[in-house]
Design a protein around this nucleic acid. Structure first.
Length: 361
DNA sequence: AAATGTCACAACCGCCGCCAA
DNA sequence: GTTGGCGGCGGTTGTGACATT
């Protein structure tokens, strides 16, 4: 038995679409609508399977498709939605205007999934999985092999894996999942990426009892800065302090200044840090990232206040043809490692005032 | 500079579920 | 209840760009 194929495959062209084919498909759909995909190729003069036409249209040619890299907000939304909806890419795509399910699926598999795995987070369950941790990378960390350190590592370009921070990340993830029902309601009732939504979500998460098991950030396992603070950092100390002063939300900076120095990232030009007033946590630390952390939601909402246009798309890489200079305060990320590293850093920051962390110390 | 490896992404395939006829 | 059409999904492949050796 079995089903008949959606079309007669004989004589059907496969592979990449040519501009001419695209034009035919666009012209036809603009004039007639897609109607029946089965009959569309013939009517449009295309030697393609109807399904192929549908995929080409829905995943690439549709006029409302947003091209380019995913923004910070989009990436966070994907992670949050995935924690609630699972692999329902179409449902996730429906909440991300301009993005297709295929695009989101690809992005998940090639970026987010890998990063979660590196963090020891099961991308399926969004729960912590120590067996997923890349222990070798931790063991090879400069923290345990000071002789391997170089300036860039000292400056935080490489991740300084902090198990406690990892715990924080995964705990928050888990708590977020526990609140998934509530979150789902929020997703339906609010616009994603709405700062109000994120602040609410953050509050819900922070109410989780799981927070109680979180050690105070930057207190136990973070290597004292003086151990690593090198000459370069000393030279830049004044600038760092200036930058710090511009980021009043860095709640722990007062008590843990060394941590700040430990994780300072010097971008292409250190003056980037000084001249970039708006990126809060991102400024002067590893650039932007992402993760389904409500802590991060808070980061984002704060960040949004200053820069609504902050976009991963323009940030993750700067193509040679891009006119955008690397002038922002290290909001540019070029590698996944940097993103990981940033994650570990943001977790050291921004514990909301509503939490009296002294209770946990 | 060339060969090789890696990565990201578009596209395909096969299956399944839904729905209308 | 059956059948066919379509959309959605997970898994996979092909290919070009880029990085590394």
């Amino acid at each position: 038995m079995g089903r008949a194929p959606c079309c007669d495959k004989s004589g059907m062209k496969k592979g990449p679409w040519t501009p001419e084919e695209d034009k035919k498909l666009i012209d036809y759909i603009q004039k007639h609508g897609h109607g029946s995909w089965r009959t569309l190729p013939k009517n449009a003069g295309l030697q393609r399977c109807g399904k192929s036409c549908r995929l080409r249209w829905t995943n690439y040619l549709r006029p409302d498709i947003k091209r380019g890299r995913f923004s910070f907000e989009e990436e966070e939304t994907i992670i949050q939605l995935h924690s609630v909806l699972g692999n329902k890419w179409s449902a996730i795509a429906a909440r991300l205007p301009g993005r297709t399910d295929n695009e989101i699926k690809n992005y998940w598999n090639t970026h987010i999934r890998k990063r979660l795995l590196r963090m020891g987070i099961d991308p399926v369950t969004h729960s912590r999985r120590f067996d997923l941790l890349d222990l070798s990378s931790i063991l090879n960390s400069p923290l345990l092999n000071p002789s391997q350190m170089n300036v860039s590592r000292l400056l935080g370009i490489q991740p300084l894996v902090n198990p406690e921070l990892l715990r924080l990340a995964t705990s928050l993830l888990s708590s977020q999942r526990e609140n998934s029902n509530l979150l789902f309601q929020n997703l339906q009732e609010t616009q994603l990426c709405n700062p109000r939504f994120q602040e609410q979500n953050q509050f819900q998460t922070l109410q989780s009892s799981q927070l109680l098991e979180i050690n105070p950030p930057c207190t136990t396992s973070t290597v004292p800065c003086d151990t690593f603070l090198n000459e370069a950092q000393h030279m830049q100390a004044n600038n760092v302090e200036q930058c710090q002063s511009e980021h009043t939300n860095f709640n722990f900076q007062g008590s843990q200044p060394n941590v700040w120095h430990d994780n300072v990232m010097v971008s292409n030009s250190f003056e980037d840090i000084v001249t970039q007033p708006n990126y809060g946590y991102y400024a002067s630390t590893q650039p932007s990232i992402d993760y389904p952390l409500s802590v991060n939601s808070n980061l984002q909402s704060n960040n949004n206040i200053h820069n609504q246009n902050f976009s991963f798309g323009s940030v993750l890489s700067t193509p040679a043809s891009s006119p955008t200079p690397l002038t922002s305060c290290s909001t540019y990320i070029s590698t996944e490692d940097e993103k990981d590293s940033y994650c570990s850093n943001i977790l050291q920051f921004e514990i909301p005032d509503i939490l009296d962390m002294s209770e946990f110390m």
